[in-house]
Protein backbone atom coordinates (compact mmCIF):
# COMPACT_ATOMS: atom_id res chain seq x y z
CA UNK A 1 0.00 0.00 0.00
CA UNK A 2 1.22 3.44 -0.96
CA UNK A 3 0.30 6.73 0.59
CA UNK A 4 0.98 10.24 -0.70
CA UNK A 5 0.55 13.00 1.79
CA UNK A 6 0.33 16.60 0.54
CA UNK A 7 3.06 15.99 -2.02
CA UNK A 8 4.29 18.91 -4.10
CA UNK A 9 7.02 18.76 -6.72
CA UNK A 10 8.34 21.74 -8.66
CA UNK A 11 10.74 21.85 -11.60
CA UNK A 12 12.00 25.39 -11.42
CA UNK A 13 9.00 27.66 -11.63
CA UNK A 14 6.78 24.93 -12.97
CA UNK A 15 4.72 22.90 -10.52
CA UNK A 16 4.60 19.28 -11.71
CA UNK A 17 2.68 17.89 -8.74
CA UNK A 18 0.47 20.14 -6.67
CA UNK A 19 -0.31 19.19 -3.08
CA UNK A 20 -1.42 15.66 -3.94
CA UNK A 21 -2.72 13.34 -1.21
CA UNK A 22 -3.90 9.91 -2.18
CA UNK A 23 -3.98 6.39 -0.92
CA UNK A 24 -3.23 3.56 -3.32
CA UNK A 25 -4.66 0.44 -1.82
CA UNK A 26 -2.73 -2.83 -1.89
CA UNK A 27 -3.31 -5.77 -4.21
CA UNK A 28 -5.22 -3.63 -6.67
CA UNK A 29 -4.53 -1.88 -9.93
CA UNK A 30 -4.73 1.90 -9.86
CA UNK A 31 -4.55 3.76 -13.15
CA UNK A 32 -3.19 7.29 -13.27
CA UNK A 33 -4.63 8.98 -16.30
CA UNK A 34 -4.36 12.46 -17.73
CA UNK A 35 -2.90 14.46 -20.62
CA UNK A 36 0.87 14.85 -21.04
CA UNK A 37 2.30 17.19 -18.48
CA UNK A 38 -0.46 16.50 -16.00
CA UNK A 39 2.05 15.09 -13.51
CA UNK A 40 1.22 11.38 -13.69
CA UNK A 41 4.76 10.23 -14.54
CA UNK A 42 6.19 12.53 -11.90
CA UNK A 43 3.93 10.91 -9.31
CA UNK A 44 5.36 7.52 -10.28
CA UNK A 45 8.92 8.85 -10.08
CA UNK A 46 8.18 10.29 -6.65
CA UNK A 47 6.98 6.90 -5.46
CA UNK A 48 10.13 5.09 -6.61
CA UNK A 49 12.32 7.91 -5.39
CA UNK A 50 13.83 8.96 -8.73
CA UNK A 51 12.83 12.44 -7.71
CA UNK A 52 12.24 13.90 -4.24
CA UNK A 53 9.16 15.87 -3.21
CA UNK A 54 9.61 19.55 -2.34
CA UNK A 55 6.89 19.14 0.26
CA UNK A 56 4.87 16.26 1.68
CA UNK A 57 5.73 12.61 2.20
CA UNK A 58 5.54 9.35 0.31
CA UNK A 59 4.97 6.16 2.31
CA UNK A 60 5.49 2.67 0.90
CA UNK A 61 4.44 -0.35 2.93
CA UNK A 62 4.27 1.78 6.03
CA UNK A 63 7.77 3.25 5.60
CA UNK A 64 8.25 6.86 4.72
CA UNK A 65 10.65 7.23 1.78
CA UNK A 66 14.01 8.73 2.79
CA UNK A 67 17.45 8.88 1.19
CA UNK A 68 18.60 6.07 3.47
CA UNK A 69 15.84 3.53 2.96
CA UNK A 70 15.08 4.25 -0.67
CA UNK A 71 17.39 1.58 -2.05
CA UNK A 72 15.95 -1.24 0.04
CA UNK A 73 12.42 -0.03 -0.63
CA UNK A 74 13.15 -0.13 -4.35
CA UNK A 75 13.74 -3.85 -4.02
CA UNK A 76 10.04 -4.07 -3.13
CA UNK A 77 9.03 -2.12 -6.21
CA UNK A 78 9.24 -3.03 -9.86
CA UNK A 79 9.41 -0.27 -12.49
CA UNK A 80 8.69 -0.55 -16.19
CA UNK A 81 8.97 2.38 -18.58
CA UNK A 82 7.71 3.00 -22.08
CA UNK A 83 10.66 1.69 -24.10
CA UNK A 84 11.61 -0.91 -21.51
CA UNK A 85 14.79 0.77 -20.30
CA UNK A 86 16.64 -2.50 -20.88
CA UNK A 87 20.44 -2.33 -20.74
CA UNK A 88 21.79 -2.86 -24.25
CA UNK A 89 25.03 -4.45 -23.02
CA UNK A 90 23.20 -7.31 -21.28
CA UNK A 91 21.15 -10.13 -22.77
CA UNK A 92 17.53 -10.49 -21.79
CA UNK A 93 18.61 -12.93 -19.09
CA UNK A 94 21.39 -10.59 -17.98
CA UNK A 95 18.90 -7.77 -17.59
CA UNK A 96 16.43 -9.89 -15.66
CA UNK A 97 19.08 -11.38 -13.35
CA UNK A 98 21.15 -8.22 -12.79
CA UNK A 99 19.72 -7.27 -9.43
CA UNK A 100 19.55 -10.85 -8.13
CA UNK A 101 23.22 -11.34 -9.03
CA UNK A 102 24.06 -8.14 -7.23
CA UNK A 103 22.18 -9.34 -4.15
CA UNK A 104 24.08 -12.61 -4.24
CA UNK A 105 21.34 -15.03 -5.15
CA UNK A 106 22.52 -18.55 -6.03
CA UNK A 107 22.48 -19.49 -9.67
CA UNK A 108 19.86 -22.17 -8.99
CA UNK A 109 17.55 -19.72 -7.34
CA UNK A 110 18.03 -17.25 -10.19
CA UNK A 111 17.37 -19.93 -12.82
CA UNK A 112 14.24 -21.15 -11.05
CA UNK A 113 12.84 -17.64 -10.72
CA UNK A 114 13.57 -16.85 -14.37
CA UNK A 115 11.79 -20.06 -15.44
CA UNK A 116 8.74 -19.04 -13.45
CA UNK A 117 8.71 -15.56 -14.92
CA UNK A 118 9.27 -16.78 -18.48
CA UNK A 119 6.12 -18.83 -18.15
CA UNK A 120 4.24 -15.98 -16.50
CA UNK A 121 5.00 -13.39 -19.19
CA UNK A 122 4.77 -16.01 -21.96
CA UNK A 123 8.16 -15.30 -23.49
CA UNK A 124 9.77 -18.02 -25.61
CA UNK A 125 12.73 -18.99 -23.33
CA UNK A 126 15.31 -18.86 -26.15
CA UNK A 127 14.60 -15.12 -26.46
CA UNK A 128 16.34 -14.48 -23.17
CA UNK A 129 19.70 -15.19 -24.80
CA UNK A 130 19.13 -12.26 -27.14
CA UNK A 131 20.22 -8.69 -26.57
CA UNK A 132 17.45 -6.08 -26.29
CA UNK A 133 17.97 -4.70 -29.77
CA UNK A 134 17.48 -8.20 -31.16
CA UNK A 135 14.00 -8.42 -29.59
CA UNK A 136 10.68 -7.02 -30.83
CA UNK A 137 9.09 -4.18 -28.90
CA UNK A 138 6.59 -6.51 -27.29
CA UNK A 139 9.28 -8.97 -26.29
CA UNK A 140 11.35 -6.13 -24.83
CA UNK A 141 8.42 -5.12 -22.64
CA UNK A 142 7.92 -8.72 -21.52
CA UNK A 143 11.60 -8.91 -20.54
CA UNK A 144 11.32 -5.55 -18.85
CA UNK A 145 8.34 -6.84 -16.86
CA UNK A 146 10.34 -9.92 -15.89
CA UNK A 147 13.15 -7.69 -14.66
CA UNK A 148 10.67 -5.65 -12.62
CA UNK A 149 9.18 -8.80 -11.11
CA UNK A 150 12.45 -10.66 -10.49
CA UNK A 151 12.71 -9.87 -6.77
CA UNK A 152 8.97 -10.50 -6.33
CA UNK A 153 8.13 -6.93 -5.31
CA UNK A 154 4.85 -6.03 -3.68
CA UNK A 155 4.46 -2.94 -5.86
CA UNK A 156 4.61 -2.70 -9.64
CA UNK A 157 4.93 0.71 -11.27
CA UNK A 158 4.31 0.94 -15.02
CA UNK A 159 4.81 4.19 -16.91
CA UNK A 160 2.97 3.90 -20.25
CA UNK A 161 4.47 0.44 -20.77
CA UNK A 162 2.48 -0.16 -23.97
CA UNK A 163 2.85 3.36 -25.36
CA UNK A 164 5.43 2.51 -27.99
CA UNK A 165 3.86 -0.69 -29.30
CA UNK A 166 1.81 -1.11 -32.44
CA UNK A 167 -1.93 -1.80 -31.87
CA UNK A 168 -1.99 -5.57 -32.50
CA UNK A 169 0.90 -6.33 -30.17
CA UNK A 170 -0.47 -3.84 -27.75
CA UNK A 171 -3.81 -5.65 -27.53
CA UNK A 172 -2.07 -8.99 -27.00
CA UNK A 173 0.09 -7.59 -24.27
CA UNK A 174 -2.83 -5.78 -22.61
CA UNK A 175 -4.65 -9.08 -22.20
CA UNK A 176 -1.56 -10.80 -20.86
CA UNK A 177 -0.75 -7.96 -18.49
CA UNK A 178 -4.25 -7.83 -17.00
CA UNK A 179 -4.10 -11.55 -16.53
CA UNK A 180 -0.71 -11.27 -14.81
CA UNK A 181 -1.84 -8.46 -12.52
CA UNK A 182 -4.88 -10.45 -11.44
CA UNK A 183 -2.90 -13.59 -10.82
CA UNK A 184 -0.13 -11.87 -8.85
CA UNK A 185 -2.35 -9.76 -6.68
CA UNK A 186 0.20 -6.94 -6.38
CA UNK A 187 -0.24 -3.25 -5.86
CA UNK A 188 -0.07 -2.03 -9.45
CA UNK A 189 0.11 1.58 -10.52
CA UNK A 190 -0.36 1.98 -14.23
CA UNK A 191 0.20 5.30 -15.98
CA UNK A 192 -1.47 5.92 -19.33
CA UNK A 193 -3.07 8.72 -21.29
CA UNK A 194 -5.36 6.29 -23.11
CA UNK A 195 -8.77 6.15 -21.55
CA UNK A 196 -9.60 2.82 -23.18
CA UNK A 197 -6.49 1.26 -21.67
CA UNK A 198 -7.33 2.85 -18.33
CA UNK A 199 -10.77 1.29 -18.41
CA UNK A 200 -9.31 -2.05 -19.36
CA UNK A 201 -6.89 -2.22 -16.41
CA UNK A 202 -8.33 0.00 -13.76
CA UNK A 203 -10.17 -1.05 -10.68
CA UNK A 204 -9.50 2.43 -9.54
CA UNK A 205 -8.73 5.45 -11.71
CA UNK A 206 -7.32 8.86 -10.85
CA UNK A 207 -7.57 11.62 -13.44
CA UNK A 208 -4.79 14.16 -13.14
CA UNK A 209 -4.86 17.69 -14.44
CA UNK A 210 -2.14 20.28 -14.03
CA UNK A 211 -0.40 18.41 -11.22
CA UNK A 212 -3.52 17.80 -9.15
CA UNK A 213 -6.11 15.03 -8.93
CA UNK A 214 -9.16 16.16 -10.83
CA UNK A 215 -11.36 13.18 -10.02
CA UNK A 216 -10.83 9.65 -8.74
CA UNK A 217 -12.89 6.57 -8.24
CA UNK A 218 -14.24 3.75 -10.38
CA UNK A 219 -13.79 4.07 -14.13
CA UNK A 220 -17.47 3.75 -14.86
CA UNK A 221 -18.25 6.62 -12.51
CA UNK A 222 -15.64 8.81 -14.14
CA UNK A 223 -17.04 8.21 -17.59
CA UNK A 224 -20.68 8.58 -16.65
CA UNK A 225 -20.45 11.33 -14.07
CA UNK A 226 -17.50 13.61 -14.71
CA UNK A 227 -17.42 16.14 -11.89
CA UNK A 228 -15.71 18.89 -13.81
CA UNK A 229 -15.63 20.42 -17.25
CA UNK A 230 -12.04 19.19 -17.70
CA UNK A 231 -12.98 15.61 -16.88
CA UNK A 232 -15.88 15.77 -19.30
CA UNK A 233 -13.69 17.26 -22.05
CA UNK A 234 -10.92 14.72 -21.49
CA UNK A 235 -13.32 11.80 -21.85
CA UNK A 236 -15.12 13.35 -24.77
CA UNK A 237 -11.84 14.05 -26.62
CA UNK A 238 -10.99 10.35 -26.73
CA UNK A 239 -14.45 9.29 -27.60
CA UNK A 240 -14.89 11.71 -30.50
CA UNK A 241 -13.06 9.87 -33.31
CA UNK A 242 -15.19 6.75 -32.94
CA UNK A 243 -18.48 8.66 -32.61
CA UNK A 244 -17.74 10.16 -35.98
CA UNK A 245 -17.68 6.67 -37.47
CA UNK A 246 -20.86 5.58 -35.73
CA UNK A 247 -22.93 8.31 -37.42
Amino acid sequence: MIQLDAVTKRYGAEVAVRNVSMELPGERTTVLIGPSGSGKSTLLRLIIGLTQPDAGTVTVDGQQLTQTNIRSLRHRMGYVIQDGGLFPHLTGRGNVALMAHHLGWTQDRIDARIDELTTLVQLPPDRLAQYPDELSGGQQQRVSLMRALMLDPSVLLLDEPLGALDPMIRTDLQDDLRDIFRRLGKTVIFVTHDIGEAGFFGDHVALLHDGAIEQQGRMATLVREPTSQFAADFIQAQRAPLEHLEE
Binding site: I48, L50, R71, S72, L73, R74, H75, M77, Y79, I81, D83, G85, L86, F87, P88, L98, M99, H102, R147
Partner: peptide, 11 residues
Protein backbone atom coordinates in the same frame (compact mmCIF):
# COMPACT_ATOMS: atom_id res chain seq x y z
CA UNK B 1 16.32 6.64 -18.95
CA UNK B 2 18.92 3.86 -18.73
CA UNK B 3 20.56 5.48 -15.74
CA UNK B 4 17.16 5.84 -14.07
CA UNK B 5 16.34 2.23 -14.82
CA UNK B 6 19.55 1.25 -13.05
CA UNK B 7 18.69 3.44 -10.12
CA UNK B 8 15.09 2.25 -9.97
CA UNK B 9 16.37 -1.31 -9.67
CA UNK B 10 17.98 -0.32 -6.40
CA UNK B 11 21.62 -0.79 -7.46
Amino acid sequence: PLLESAEALGL
